[in-house]
């Protein structure tokens, strides 16, 4: 046995820490909780101004690109490329005004939105439930996983004619098309989300003997929140595509129907108008998702 009397410290200097012990507040705080001073108020104002300037630059750039694109399009068409092929923004604007005035725009838009909406309302929850079920079950989940992935890679466009045979030419076949488009996105994102949950968090609730419901509410759903929002974002675009495809194949109303009709008449402006309406709709919905995202992921 060694008999050294000199303490071989492991990096801890006992004397140094005693001085720190005097203050009762927690150590190492990066954001000390103190009352706002005047300097803080000034600093806040400076921060806010910088934030606002940055946001302005970004929005200006976004609008600029859109306007620039339309301007080039307007200039080029009729000058270098025949209007027959690419139409032109002023014609499309005129058409939108006409369709809105006659009520035709709302009629088509309403149907497409309803189809997409119902499809999302069925497909997303179904995908989320399926994703959680498959990801959390040890055996049964692995039985069905390869089949779900196989279905995922099926070209859904080819299903459209079948769906019309199975579900008729009305609303139902369109809704089913939307469902097949969005269900897999929701499934896959949620599945990956659940698989990537921090093991320690699940071990923690398990060691506390939490019920499945509490684990789902406190750990799983919040942990996959970002994944579900990604799924929602992708699903809105895909859902609209699904509805349009189904309408192209067989329908008597909807934006897809209007595009098909215009295309049969070689009416490029009509086709472009339909596409533009869908694009604008997708952009508006994207804003809604961004708003939800900001609220849900505030903890980051």
């Amino acid at each position: 046995m060694q008999k050294s009397e000199v303490p071989i410290t492991t990096g801890v200097v006992p004397g140094a820490s005693i001085a720190a012990e005097v203050t009762p507040s927690p150590v190492g705080t990066t954001t000390p909780a103190h009352k706002d001073t005047r300097a803080d108020t000034v600093a806040d104002a400076v921060d806010r101004r910088a934030d606002r300037r940055e946001r302005l630059v970004i929005v200006a750039g976004q609008v600029g690109i859109g306007v620039g694109f339309l301007a080039v399009w307007q200039l080029v068409s009729g000058l270098w490329i025949d209007r027959f092929f690419i139409s032109e923004p002023s014609l499309i604007a005129e058409r939108i005004v006409d369709l809105a005035a006659s009520g035709e725009l709302w009629m088509h838009l309403r149907v497409t939105v309803i189809e997409t909406g119902i499809g999302l309302a069925i497909g997303l929850p179904a995908g989320v439930i399926l994703g959680i079920a498959v990801a959390t079950s040890r055996i049964a989940g692995r039985w069905v996983y390869p089949y779900i992935i196989a279905l995922y890679s099926l070209p859904r466009v080819a299903l459209a004619p079948l769906f019309i045979v199975w579900f008729g030419i009305g609303l139902f076949s369109k809704v089913m098309m939307v469902v097949t488009m969005v269900l897999f996105v929701a499934f896959y994102n949620v599945y990956q989300g659940v698989k990537s949950i921090d093991r320690d968090l699940l071990d923690m609730t398990k060691s506390y003997r939490a019920s499945r419901w509490i684990t789902l509410r406190w750990v799983m759903l919040p942990a996959i929140g970002a994944w579900m929002l990604t799924a929602l974002r992708l699903a809105i675009g895909l859902g609209l595509i699904g509805a349009i495809i189904a309408e192209l194949i067989g329908s008597s109303v909807g934006i897809g129907y209007y595009i098909k009709l215009s295309s049969n008449l070689f009416d490029t402006t009509g086709v472009m108008t339909g596409l533009l309406v869908i694009t604008v709709l997708a952009m508006l919905l994207e804003q809604v998702v961004a708003f939800i995202e900001k609220r849900v992921l505030r903890y980051r």
Partner: peptide, 24 residues
């Protein structure tokens, strides 16, 4: 169990994290 990494729920506030075992 107190875990090697603290295993706190990042989406819950301090008081909510501490409340969890009480809920359970």
């Amino acid at each position: 169990m107190v875990f090697q990494n603290d295993a706190l729920l990042p989406w819950r506030s301090v008081k909510e994290n501490v409340r969890l075992p009480l809920v359970i």
